[in-house]
Design a protein around this nucleic acid. Structure first.
Lengths: 237, 237
DNA sequence: CGGGCACTTGATAGTAATCAAGTCCGGTGG
DNA sequence: CCACCGGACTTGATTACTATCAAGTGCCCG
């Protein structure tokens, strides 16, 4: 944790820029210059960071914490599109094109973000074209993930959807553990349901089933110990 | 139709580059230079143009015709991700990143494509950075569409899915008609089903329902006359 | 330790997939 | 031009599964 080293603004700034792949091609001096452009902001769990339809004036980088990007249908249902964590960023599309946000973003926990103003970002992109390539790289990864999601939602069984999201969380948030992979879930059962288009009851039931099959072990509501990763992968088809 | 004007290779080349938004920032002379890099190819209905996992060495631009991009699950189910028509292109992601194709592409009808080789494309992107921005623009549009698809598949009813795809086709392929909008369907019932994650029977039933409600009229299997666009839009939620 | 909220589990109902006939369209050949 | 043939589409009956409705249970935090 950087806080153990130095918690002054300068260090925070620098580390913030280092966490993000889009700046990875910059030299330390250039990074320092970028750091000067950054504004910090903190949100509490449940705070709405951006609202759908709102026009954004900054690129938002997650420095610490987690957020969900989602849309609401008129009848109140929610569809989660992305979960952004430390090092992820959003709002880039609203800066590149001049367009309002197409989704809401809400903090899932206490979250520290770094903001780069539109005009600064556009200058950066011009000065360092590699940044555009990195942004493109990130857009491609999101396309890959969404294509995979569409495939799973279109052709997959409910088991496949639940297995798929658990594997995604295992890769992103999992930590080695003597008995398997320990996963700290970023979402509640209901949140998971809204991520894969199911109801909380169905998610509950399928996870209980996976536990009965010895594939995983639920530790309270927020942790899952994945015992048999291969079995989940077999569920994908 | 350009064929009525001139069908020589030069003209075809030029028109091919003009149809594509990614080259829209180039001057006529620059376009002519690009045209010289282009290789033409023709596919018949049903031909597989690219296979999932195959590594591509070219950007593919549709000059005439239509193709579908799709994935197959192990149990044989198909999920259509994109339908590309005249002026659309694909393969850009495999050139920017060095990665195999993540989907199959098959001609839906006789299709004429223009190819630009990887090395040529990479030089072009370097010489004309605006091309990268245009590609990014296109990636953003695909993200928008996929996000919309995920939302519809996750929270929408079956009526909403069918209505959504019909509206998409109306916008893309619809032509004004005294009684409404005439749509030439790019896909069979089964194709539509694979596009929105349903079975052909369900698509059939829902379309018959829409006809009974006076919202549309089916003219043979390949044409639909949309009589009440607003009603379809109301179905979205 | 207690209260509230999230989660689990159970029963029921609604809906789409599946299975199974038919019907229609479009193309081909006489 | 018409008759025929095959593939795509439609329609119906049944089954399977998940959403919904409804109680409980348990975790977490004050």
């Amino acid at each position: 944790m950087y806080k153990n080293i130095c918690s002054c603004d300068i260090c925070n700034h620098k580390l913030c820029t280092k966490k993000v792949s889009i700046f990875s091609s910059l030299s330390p001096e250039q990074l320092a210059k970028v750091a000067n452009l950054i504004i910090h902001k903190e949100y509490q769990k449940g705070d709405l960071i951006v609202m759908e339809g709102e026009s954004m004036d900054s690129l938002v980088i997650i420095n610490e914490g987690q957020v969900k990007a989602f849309r609401n249908t008129q009848d109140g249902r929610e569809q989660i599109l992305y979960i952004f964590s430390e090092g992820d960023f959003f709002g880039e599309r609203n800066l590149l094109r001049d367009q309002a946000s197409t989704y809401n973003v809400k903090a899932l926990e206490k979250t520290h973000v770094c903001l780069i103003h539109k005009r600064d970002f556009q200058v950066l992109v011009k000065d360092f074209p590699d940044i555009a390539l990195k942004v493109m790289e990130e857009l491609c990864q999101r396309l890959d993930r969404l294509e995979h999601t569409v495939e799973t939602m279109g052709t997959g069984t409910v088991e496949a959807r639940v297995s798929s999201v658990l594997l995604e969380f295992a890769d992103k948030y999992g930590k080695a553990h003597p008995k398997g992979i320990m996963i700290e879930l970023p979402l509640s059962r209901e949140g998971i349901a809204h991520y894969i288009g199911l109801t909380r009851e169905t998610v509950s039931r399928k996870m209980s089933m996976l536990q009965d099959e010895g594939i995983l072990e639920m530790l309270g509501n927020k942790k899952v110990l994945l015992l048999d990763r291969a079995a989940l992968e077999r569920n994908l088809e």
